Simulated assay, not measured.
Amino acid sequence: MLGIMLVAASAAVFGLAGVLTKSIHADPLTINCWRGLVGGALISVYVFWRRRNSGIAGLPRLGWRGWLLATIGACASIAFISAFKNTYVANVAIIYATAPFVAALLGWLLLRERVRAQTMLAAVLSLAGVGMMVFAGLGTGRPFGDALALVMTCGSALYMVLVRKFRDTPVVWAGAVSGLLLFVFGWLVTDPSAISWRDAWLLAAFGVSFALASVLWTEGARLIPAAEAGLLGSAEVPFAILFGWLFLTEFPPPASLIGGGLVLLAVVAHAGRDWLAARRAVALP
């Protein structure tokens, strides 16, 4: 029960990303800069706490694999924040929900992992939903944001595949370093100090929410099966849409809702089948 509560809470906190991004007047690079600093610092504190008996010498070593993960994560984060600035919160959340299916395709291409029939069917249904959303956005000035969301989704999917490939790499520590890389990059290409006090408070809250969601997910996923964690993680999408409607009065067009419904149907059905299969396997003597 504790694991379920932690992962569900993580999904809710992650769902605030779109609202926080659109509420901050700063540009995407500045947002990434401060979000990366606050989030990266807090996740680093969490890593230190988990390894408090080992001391500084016991900190995990990234190696080139960890640095690669951190770099990919930073690039995906830039596309993620930029997408929210250029399209509906619902569109970004729904397109991102297809990441597991993109990861399955990349896993087949890069690792020669077998793709199940149910995954292929869910991927096709998701692709149809995303295509409907992107096509509907061509006449509204939103296709650039949808394209950025697709880039972010592909980057996140590649991150998932490499995490499976590099099983001995400290993923949480790589996430902290990714945030710190965004902070350094932001100082080099923009002026992060040129923000209002209002934006400063929101940026701090954004960094805290990012770190909190990451820690909640990490701790919750340790306590429940992977299939159940994946199913609960998909709750991020309805949370994001709900928060966008409540706090931004942002209601996407009908085509986005229909396309999003197809994606959600595919994600929930796919994760639900995995969850049922996992429970049946546990129930067997």
Rank of each mutant, 00 (worst) to 15 (best):
L216R: 04
G39A: 09
L138A: 07
Q118E: 15
T71R: 05
W64E: 14
P143Q: 13
G15Q: 00
L231K: 02
F247C: 04
I258H: 13
T98N: 08
A157D: 00
G259W: 00
W275G: 08
A123L: 14
V115P: 08
W67V: 11
W34G: 01
V45H: 10
C75T: 15
V102A: 11
G145S: 01
A281H: 08
L37E: 00
G207R: 02
L257V: 03
L181T: 03
L162I: 09
F210E: 09
A104D: 07
K85W: 14
W173V: 10
G179A: 04
R35F: 00
V115G: 07
V267Q: 13
S209H: 01
W197C: 13
R280T: 08
A213I: 04
G107C: 11
L125F: 12
A41K: 12
A104V: 07
F48K: 11
V184T: 04
G39M: 09
S178P: 04
V19F: 05
L182F: 03
L138P: 06
M120R: 14
L6N: 01
Q118D: 15
I24T: 10
V171P: 01
L110V: 15
A174D: 05
V102M: 10
T190E: 10
A227V: 05
P253A: 05
P170L: 06
R112H: 14
S23L: 03
R222K: 10
G129P: 01
L232H: 01
T140R: 12
A213C: 05
A74Q: 03
A211W: 06
T249C: 09
L203I: 03
I94Y: 02
A79F: 15
V7F: 04
G175I: 03
I43N: 05
